[in-house]
Amino acid sequence: MKTWLRQHRAALGHALQRLWRAPLNTLLSLVVIGIAMTLPAAGYILLDNVQKLGVNASGVQEISVFMRTDASDEMTGAVEAALAERFPGQWRFVSRAVALESLKTREGMADIVESLPQNPLPDAFVVEPQASAPKALESLKDSLAALPGVAHVQLDSAWIQRFDALLRLGRLIVSLLAAVFAVGLVAITFNTIRLQVLARADEIEVARLIGATDAFIRRPFYYSGILQGGLGGLAAGALILLGLAALQAPVERLASLYGSDFALTGLALRHFALLPLIGAFLGWIGAQISVSLALRQMEQGNA
């Protein structure tokens, strides 16, 4: 166990040394990996912010609950009580009289309203629930419609559904982008590790001849791939932070011109930790494929 740990430490040391000895190559690889990871990550951040923007836009999620015109006061009271319990502060009551008044103020409607024998409008509640997922809203709508005396529940959700579909599409595109760049990252690692293996052909041959196991020979290259991917992930995190810092002020100014207090959200700390982890994992995969292939080729070359 102790020996095992020591060998891993030594392999890690070798890998670090290798990165350090070719600073330009290392830097270029890290920049490439960093950019490759920045693009999908930036896409996720963008979607996140767009979604927040959508949720922020007020009046988007409205449920109108229309009572039957013959609904009794008890029924209206029951609905009011239910709403007060489930959506405290998120609803308002529009009585039929108020609704008629507001209809009268509209251009050309006054005469028509005057000519009506009686008020045809029902009492209504307007709910602005906090839940925003279209599915949740649908089930809300159903539960409201089931209340006694309710004639009709209208969900102003077309806009939300479109917005949600757009977000879904965006997420799909970002996911595809991420997959493409993940393959790219594996390919980058594959290439750099391959060059490393070929450059060390002599050392590998000698080590084999004097009793190195396969694991011993592969280990430093795995660490190289892991380090490269992990550091690339850190680089991506740094690029994203820089980008957000640069955008923050202009975005806030734009938002304030629209009278909004919208501000860009970056990545949560755990997401920042995820970037190097993903990078390291992909780097490890690239190194694995690369070392296996290069070693097999070397063996065939020697035979």
Binding site: D202, E205, V206, L209, G211, A212, T213, D214
Partner: peptide, 17 residues
């Protein structure tokens, strides 16, 4: 590998690094 560890070999072309 474990066999070779108990063996000392001086190669014709030495194979020094």
């Amino acid at each position: 590998p474990y066999l070779r560890r108990n063996l000392g070999v001086v190669f014709q072309d030495q194979k020094l690094l």
